[in-house]
Every structure is written in C-alpha cells, then in structure tokens.
Design a protein around this nucleic acid. Structure first.
Lengths: 341, 341
DNA sequence: TATGTTTAGTTAAACGTTTAACCAGAAAGA
DNA sequence: TCTTTCTGGTTAAACGTTTAACTAAACATA
C-alpha cells in the first residue's frame, strides 16, 4: 500500500492537518516544520490521493471528451487527432482526459456517459456535431462544456472553431489565381454549420472576383460527406455542367471521391480539372495525384480546446469564449493552371 | 449540485446504509424497501459518485495507458489505434482509460505519471517498447501491468502480443508461392523482440522450402525502422546482392522506403522486384503500387489488452497470461509472380 | 499584573460512499 | 412464558483528504 497522509504525519510527528497545510504552503506553518514535513514526504515518496482530494474539493482533475461513435471510428482520424492534441495539452494543465462515444443511432432514452453521471469529470469537451437531443440532456447537468469544431446554433457557450469561411475563401482564391473561371463546389451534410461556412467563403471569393455564381456550379444535396458522396456528387455535377474546370470539395474525403470519378471517366487531374479539398487528411498526401487542400490543424484544435477549458474551469466566469484557429492552403498536385485548349 | 446518497435516504425515509445496500441488492433489505429506494433513485436521477466510491473500495475504475512520446506522436497511428481499441473495450467493462506519454529522451530522474502516483488507476497498460529504467521504476509501484505489442525479456507478466513469427513466415511464404527464390530481408532496431521474431519466421519459411539463407540477403543493422531506414537499407542490400527478386521489410514504413529507393533507381515494382511489408498502415493502401503486407489488427490488440486487464483485475491471480493475436496476409500490388527474363 | 494579540500548531467536521457491528421486533422452540 | 433465532433494518467507523474552528504558548501592551 502506498503511504497516506497519516504515515507522513506519524513520521514527521505532526498532525495530518499540519501535513496538508505544509503541502499547500500555508503561512500558518513555520518554515522549519514545512521543511521537516517535506523531507518525510520525499522519503516516503508520498503523493496525495486524487480521489480523496477530489472528494473534498469537488474537483476530479479529469476532463471528459465526447464525440459520436461514427466520428470516433471513421478511418480518417480527424477527431481522434483532436483528441490526441487535447490529451497532450491536458498534461500541461494537470488534467487527464476521459473519452466516450455517443452510440449511433441514438437510442430513444438518451444515456449520458458514466463520467458525467458519476461526477468523474470537471468539464466536458464536445467534439464535432452531436445530436440535439443528447446535447439537451447534457445541458441539464450544469457542467462546463466547451465545443470544438462545432457548436449548436443559439447555444451560449465556449468553443474552439476552425476558420471555415476563410478556408473556403482561400481554397476558391487559389483556384482563381490559377486562372479558373468556372469553379464548382461539392458538399453534403448541409445542416452542418462548418460546411455551410466553407461554402459561404467560396461564394464570397467568387463574388469578390466577379466570377459567375450559379446553382449549376453546386452540388449540396448529398446527405453526408464521404468519399462515396464525393463520387456521386461529381457525377451529378459534371452531368449538369460542362464548363467547369475546377472543383472545390467541402472536405478531402469528398475530394478523393471526386478524383476517383474523374479518373474513371478519363478526365485527368490537374490537366483537365483542378481539385481542392479541405482538412488535409493523411490520404491527401499519398493519393495520385496528391491532393491540394486547406489544412486544418487538428492537433492544434485539441490543444486549444483544453486551454480554453482550463481557463473556463479556473475562472468561474462562464462567459462564452470563442477561439478561432486559422487554416492553411496546401498546394499539391491536384490543382494546376487553367489550360486553354 | 447532483443528488447524493443522503438525498435518496431522506426521500425514501431510510438510512443511507439501506440505500447503499439496496443498490447492491443485498438480501438484508426487503423487496419492498428495495423497490421504494429504487423508485426514489430513479426520480432523483441519482448515481453514486465514482471518487467517493473509489475511496472506500480502493478501486478507481480507471486504467492507465502508457507509451513513449515518439510512439504517440508518430504519424502512423499504430499505437494510437491500439489505444482507441482499448478505449472502446474499456467502456464495455465500465472502465475509463487515462493516457500518458513517456518523454524522450528520458530524463535522468524518472518521473512516473501522476495517475499512478496519485492512485488514480487500478492497472496499467504498457504499449510498445519503453525504457528499462522506466519499467523498473514502474514495477516498484506494485500495480498490475499488462503489456501490449511488447514485453520485456525475463519479466513475468501478462501481455497481448502479435504473432510476429507466424507473420514473418506468412510473408515469406507468400513470396515463395509467387516463385521467388532469392528473398531479401530488411530490418532495424534489432534489439526489439518483435522485429527479431519476424525475421525468425522468415528464416523458418526459407528453410522449410530449402531456399538459400545467407547474410547476403539481410540488412539488419539499421538503428530504427523508419522510411528513411528502409531507403538506406535497400541501397545497401542491392549493392551487396544482385540476385534478389523479392524483399520482405520488417514493417511498412521500411517497405515504403525500399519502394522509394527502387523507384528512384528505375526498378519497377512488382515487375522486377516484389515487396512485402508488415503492419498494414494506412499509407500501404494508397501508395503506388499499393503495398502487400501482413496486417496487424491494431484495434483488436487494444480490445484484447483491456479484456486481459479486466480479467487480471477481477481475479486477483497475477498469473502471467499471454494472448497472441493472429495476423493476416494482405495481397496488394507490390508483390507479383517471379518473371524469368 | 492582568489583558490582548500573534504564532504555530491541533481537533474535528466534512466530502460521499461502503460495510462491519449492532439492535429492535417478530417468529419459533422449549 | 422465557429464551433463541430470524428478519430487516440502523449506527457508526472507515477510506484519504481539506479546512474552519479552536487552543496553548509566547509575546506585547497598558
């Protein structure tokens, strides 16, 4: 059994209160006694028990991390990268992360994670979009929540967000710089704010450069944003519009699906069609051609969300802070100059 | 504030002991009282506090997960996949995982993770190779340890391991089946048991098929197993041996490095040289050509290690169990029939 | 000298559980 | 009827901390 505060007290010939006060550097305790206590603590290699401490302080030292099962399990480690960043930063603030997933489909009777019911976390990070119903349930628990890469409309809260609007703009501008005039957009999961923001950024860039904006350039009705959705969207887009020379896909998965379709159709990238994605997933670096994209600093998002959580937990002020982290254009081989032929 | 056991007791008009006993379905309590208590519990949405419960039971409900910083941060998410598997299975056993990394280089004064010092975990999963010094320190804490994908020589413990020997054998046999006679091996980090086991499996296959075994076929002196190591190893191997028509690399990273070298040298894969790797990392699916390999079920390893930990924690018997999980040959485009030209 | 103030601690309550030890009342055995 | 045994609880101690309230001794003030 590891030593407890009692053992320290006994060895130092003081009361356990003195030990505790010494540890917390209370000025009630003389330098001399502190020294003695610290000496014993070192000798016994004593460390206060986190659970015991938590009982009285009502702080667990843990942060919960919640995301949907789909986000957790999907092969592109987007949210798991965020988690790993959070995990890393948590250490710098003396926290540990507890992770849990929301099952999908959501059962009728929402069951909150054990760590919130059993009061085993001080705050919760919600990563990515989660069902409204779940959120409503969570809100009742009166536990600090910080969102990352998503936050519900009309919900007053802290969040770390990607600069999706700017990202969409940057992506479109990159294509414009390359000389493209007819730039298509493929997206899906349309009630996701991030996707719409990317779209808005794209539109904004087109307008700013007085380029044509038209429904004929967009596919936005895919219900999700997978590779397969990208494939289907590309098919639809090229059917209804022959003038397009570049496509901005709302994420890399869809972009890869688009490329796959183009390849099957014998349309070469980037010679006949430029493609740019969003996210910078691993696969973007190794696809043929490698995929130009807008990089989202996933790991960084994780760091930020824990910093924000730490601040929230520290200062009881539950003012809703928003942190926006920037994105970066990554030029690879799927985008090229417009060729007039 | 969430309700405590006291609130339940008050509402049910019984003592807190009765509530506790009712929760644990103790036969001392009449059916009738149990019903009443359960009713109140449901109404108040009461859940026992994990920390408080832990104080008396001396169980935290947490499992620690330790790996080196390098393993954690490296781009190929091998160990993080294991972690995610562990995380998933942990839920099925009502545990939460706490993750921490070992800094590298290891500081002179080894500092164990807070979660073990503060008794915030019931057991520890050690993933991958960690420094001996660290392990020695950890051992002193008398906390159950289960290893995954590694375990130290001469250490009596439980572990979940990959069937590396068989994997090496299967890889070599695949090449043999394709008609190859001169099959090279490139490896590194030679004091890692897994690597050596893969090599042993490879040798065993060669011998079984009466194929030549010779030092001229092997590069084993690379100090690590990165892509760059693979590149260098390929260079060395092809310098000293011109008859080779196939190469088994001890992992995918090295295999990709080998392919890169071959490409630069104008040696086509698989026409002139077949390559097979080990691990089945993401990049293996998207490289050109896609990489044949021996798949390691990383996620599955995570599941297994938690199952084993659960068993260990359940039955106080600290008999050292070993679980070996199988591997699977994945045929892709980097291996082909021997062409006699 | 009596009284107040400081210093450096100690005692005890509290946090939310579990569980061993105890106990009142009912049923059973003599 | 008196003891014994069951039944169905309750009381209280314990887990390892923190911290408010208290106190004894030393010192200062009038």
């Amino acid at each position: 059994m590891p030593p407890t505060i009692k053992d320290v007290a006994k060895h130092a010939n003081v009361s356990i209160a003195t030990v505790s006060l010494a540890i917390h550097d209370n000025q009630r305790i003389s330098e001399e006694t502190k020294q003695k206590v610290m000496q014993v603590i070192k000798e016994l290699n004593y460390h206060p028990s986190r659970p015991a401490r938590g009982l009285v302080s009502q702080k667990t030292g843990n942060i919960g991390f919640i995301l949907t099962e789909n986000h957790f399990l999907r092969s592109e480690p987007f949210y798991t990268q965020i988690f790993l960043g959070a995990e890393f930063e948590a250490h710098n603030h003396d926290y540990y992360m507890l992770l849990t997933t929301i099952p999908e489909p959501l059962p009728k009777k929402v069951k909150l994670p054990r760590f919130v019911l059993e009061r085993n976390v001080d705050g919760i990070v919600v990563a990515g979009k989660i069902p409204e119903k779940y959120l409503a349930q969570l809100e009742k628990e009166e536990i600090p929540i910080v969102f990352v890469d998503y936050y519900p409309d009309g919900f007053d809260c802290s969040a770390v967000l990607i600069d999706n609007f700017n990202g969409g703009k940057v992506a479109a501008e990159h294509l414009i710089d390359l000389g493209h005039k007819y730039i298509g957009f493929v997206g899906g999961d349309w009630n996701h704010p991030s996707i719409r923001n990317r779209f808005d950024g794209y539109i904004s860039a087109l307008e700013q450069h007085h380029l044509p904006v038209s429904d004929l350039l967009h596919i936005t009705d895919e219900d999700n944003t997978t590779r397969e959705n990208g494939y289907q969207a590309a098919k639809k887009l090229l059917k209804k519009n022959k003038t397009i020379t570049a496509i901005f896909a709302c994420n890399d998965a869809m972009a890869l699906g688009v490329m796959q379709y183009l390849q099957e159709e014998g349309i070469s990238v980037p010679e006949q069609m430029s493609i740019i994605g969003f996210d910078d997933v691993e696969a973007a670096q190794v696809s043929t051609p490698t995929l130009s994209t807008v990089a989202v600093p996933k790991y960084e998002l994780g760091l930020e969300v824990v910093r924000l959580m730490d601040k929230t937990l520290d200062t009881k002020n539950i003012t809703s802070n928003k942190v926006v982290v920037g994105v970066e254009l990554i030029r690879r081989n799927s985008t090229g100059n417009l060729r007039l032929c």
